[in-house]
């Protein structure tokens, strides 16, 4: 009788042990799931940040700023009698118009009209003309 009771207790103990080990495995799985969800969330936020930044940097206003400043620097460093052409279709987008007005360079990129422009300080007379698929800036 005593040995039967002992046997029963042993079986019960083993059953408990088996149940606990199942539970532990289940918990480990849950933790893994949570970690995965957190990684996905962090990745999602990071992707949104990267796309938002890339969108801003490749925006038309930034391209316009780059072109206006590059053009102003070219005019500043040019000597009298120099001419340079700006292709209408270029890596910074399609240039619709280039204007020189009151000592400032205005560039319209992909339909975005220039508002501020950028000043140049050349002592020469600067003009711009359209010639086929490019704008030609003359410094005289």
């Amino acid at each position: 009788m005593g040995s039967l009771l002992k046997m029963e207790k042993k079986v019960q103990f083993q059953r408990n042990l088996l149940y606990l080990s199942h539970l532990r495995i289940r918990k480990k799985g849950e933790v893994l799931n949570q970690v995965l969800v957190h990684i996905v969330l962090v990745g999602l936020i990071f992707a949104i940040f990267v796309f938002a930044t890339a969108g801003r940097i490749n925006g038309r206003d930034v391209k316009q700023q780059v072109l206006e400043k590059e053009l102003a620097l070219l005019i500043d460093s040019a000597e009298g009698g120099m001419e340079f052409g700006i292709q209408k279709a270029m890596i910074n987008g399609k240039i619709n118009n280039v204007e020189i007005k009151e000592g400032r360079v205005y560039v319209t990129v992909e339909g975005l009209a220039a508002t501020k422009g950028y000043p140049y300080f050349s002592k020469y007379s600067v003009s711009v003309r359209e010639e086929g698929n490019k704008f030609v800036v003359s410094v005289r």
Binding site: I57, G59, D61, V62, Q65, V66, L73, D76, F121
Partner: peptide
């Protein structure tokens, strides 16, 4: 997004 060109302008000036 502000592109800084003042250094280049200082050199040219």
């Amino acid at each position: 997004y502000e592109i800084e060109v003042r250094d280049s302008e200082a050199v040219i000036l």
